[in-house]
Write a protein that binds this DNA or RNA. Structure first.
Length: 295
DNA sequence: AATCGCGCCTGACGGC
DNA sequence: TGCCGTCAGGCGCGAT
C-alpha cells in the first residue's frame, strides 16, 4: 500500500535511470486499471524523453515535451526497472523501454492504480487541480530542477506552501467528519494515508474520532508537526534503501523500516503508557489509537 | 456544500 | 487438499 513516502521513494529511485533517456518502445499488456491505459501512448512517447520525474501528492508525473505520463500506484502498484526484454510476470501491465537498456515496468495486482496521459497544463487537470497542499512542500520544490519542464502556474500550484495549523483550522470549521477522515482527504492535504494518519494523530495526542471542527488551532499545530515528522522520517527510511533501486527488488516500503507506535498494534501495549492500543472502524477504515494518550 | 457509502480488484488467511 | 467468505485499502464518484 504505497503512501506518500513510498511514492517519493519510487520517484527518487527511477529518476536517474529514466530522466533524459529517450523512449524506444511502449507496450501495454492490460488496458483495464482504474481507467483504461491510453492506447496511443506509444505514439506520444516513442522518440521523446522525460525531462522531469515529479510528484504531486501520490501522483507520479513523468514530464516530456509532448505531455505528461501521470501514474498513480493505487493500493498495490509498483514501478520497477528491469532490463529491456526481461520476461513478463503476472500483473505486469505496461513497459516503457528506454535507450539505456532499461525498461520502466508498471506492475499492479489489484489494478486500483492509474496510468493517464495529460497533454494540457498540469494545474488544469481535473484530478490535480482540486488537490490540497503538499505536507512537505520542500520536496516539491526540489523536484523542479528543470524549470522549463513545467509551466509557471503548474509549478506554483505544486509548490505552494500553505500547509499550516491555521490552514487546517480554517478548513475544518463547521466540519463534523472525524479529524482522521479530514486529514486523509486529499482535497485538504495530500499524501496522508491510513497508516500515517493513525501515527500522526497518536503523536499529536488527538483522538481519531474527534470531529475535525472541534479541534483547537493549537492542537492543529501539533498535528501539522506530527504529519511532517512522520512523513519525512518515512521518506528518510525509504531513502536509506534507495542505493540499489534498479537491482534491489528487495527494497521495503518505508513503514517496514519505521517504528509504528499504533498502526496494526491493537491490544498491544502503548509505547508511552502501556495501556492496550484500541481499534476503531471509521468508514471502511481501521484506526488505531491509545485511549489514554489521545483525546 | 458536506457527507456517506459503493465499487474497483486480487491475494492472504482462517474455518471447515 | 480445496473451497468459500472476509478483509485489506486509495480514490473517484454518485446519491442524499
Amino acid at each position: 500500500m504505497p503512501e506518500l513516502p513510498e511514492v517519493e521513494t519510487t520517484r527518487r529511485g527511477i529518476e536517474p535511470h529514466v530522466k533524459n533517456h529517450c523512449v524506444e518502445a511502449v507496450e501495454i499488456y492490460c488496458k483495464k486499471l482504474r481507467y483504461p491505459i491510453p492506447q496511443n501512448l506509444a505514439a506520444k512517447l516513442v522518440g521523446t524523453s522525460f525531462v522531469e520525474v515529479a510528484r504531486r501528492g501520490k501522483y507520479l508525473l513523468l514530464i516530456s515535451s509532448a505531455g505528461t505520463l501521470m501514474i498513480h500506484l493505487g493500493m498495490s502498484g509498483n514501478l520497477l526497472l528491469v532490463d529491456v526484454g526481461a520476461a513478463i510476470n503476472k500483473h505486469d501491465h505496461l513497459d516503457i523501454s528506454l535507450e539505456n537498456g532499461l525498461c520502466l515496468r508498471y506492475h499492479d495486482p489489484r489494478r486500483f492504480g492509474m496510468v493517464l496521459w495529460v497533454s494540457t497544463e498540469l494545474w488544469r487537470h481535473r484530478l490535480l487541480k482540486t488537490l490540497g497542499p503538499e505536507p512537505l512542500p520542500k520536496l516539491s520544490v526540489k523536484q523542479f530542477s528543470n524549470r522549463q519542464a513545467i509551466d509557471v502556474k503548474s509549478a506554483q500550484h505544486f509548490t505552494r506552501d500553505t500547509f499550516s495549523a491555521e490552514y487546517l483550522y480554517q478548513k475544518s470549521r463547521g466540519r463534523r467528519i472525524s479529524v482522521k477522515q479530514f486529514i486523509m482527504d486529499s482535497h485538504i492535504v495530500v499524501g496522508v494515508g491510513n497508516i500515517y494518519a493513525s501515527e500522526a494523530l497518536f503523536m499529536a495526542g488527538i483522538h481519531p474520532g474527534r470531529a475535525a471542527g472541534r479541534v483547537a488551532q493549537a492542537r492543529y499545530q501539533c498535528l501539522v508537526e506530527a504529519i511532517k515528522k512522520v512523513l519525512s522520517d518515512a521518506v528518510q527510511s525509504g531513502g536509506t534503501t534507495l542505493r540499489d533501486f534498479y537491482h534491489g527488488k528487495d527494497r521495503q516500503p518505508g513503514y517496514f523500516q519505521q517504528k509504528l507506535n499504533v498502526y496494526g498494534r491493537q491490544n498491544l501495549p502503548c509505547s508511552v503508557c502501556q495501556h492496550p492500543i484500541k481499534l476503531l472502524r471509521q468508514g471502511q477504515r481501521s484506526s488505531f489509537y491509545c485511549s489514554v494518550c489521545q483525546h
